[in-house]
């Protein structure tokens, strides 16, 4: 049941990414290019997504617990540290270079190009290497 929910969520999320243009790296780079030929439309993706989630979460949290689990599992870390910020810096560099963040990168696998395979394999390598860097 839980896995089925993840499957459904993945489907809906992916349609959201595709309709909004997040799976078009050139469009993403155009959104980030605020000093050049800026395409501001992607700001609406984040804006609407945040507002929708903000309202939706409030309604969901009115219930004592989620439908399929015993409790909500929310991040407990509170403080802003160097690990958080340095991670965000590295991610920002990678996102700026490629126009790809993790969700759109996975969706783009269906394009079947060598470039996207290389990116996703490197991303998974990064996932594996990262915990070793922390120690």
């Amino acid at each position: 049941m839980k896995a089925l929910i993840y499957l459904l969520v993945g489907c809906v999320f992916s349609v959201g990414l595709i309709l909004s243009g997040m799976t078009q790296p050139l469009k993403v780079v155009g959104f980030l290019d605020i000093f050049g030929s800026w395409d501001p439309s992607l700001a609406f993706v984040m804006g609407v997504a945040v507002l929708t989630t903000l309202v939706g979460y409030r309604l969901v949290f009115l219930d004592a617990k989620p439908l399929c689990e015993d409790s909500f599992k929310l991040p407990t870390l509170q403080h802003i540290d160097m690990r958080l910020l340095s991670g965000a810096v590295l991610f920002g560099m990678g996102w700026g270079i490629s126009g790809l963040c993790p969700g759109p990168a996975l969706a783009s696998l269906v394009a079947g190009s060598v470039g996207i395979y290389v990116f996703v394999i490197a991303m998974f390598l990064g996932f594996v290497v990262a915990p070793k860097l922390i120690k």
Partner: peptide, 9 residues
């Protein structure tokens, strides 16, 4: 770029 995204996130 992939390594940066993987490690950074």
């Amino acid at each position: 770029a992939g390594i940066l995204v993987g490690v950074g996130t």
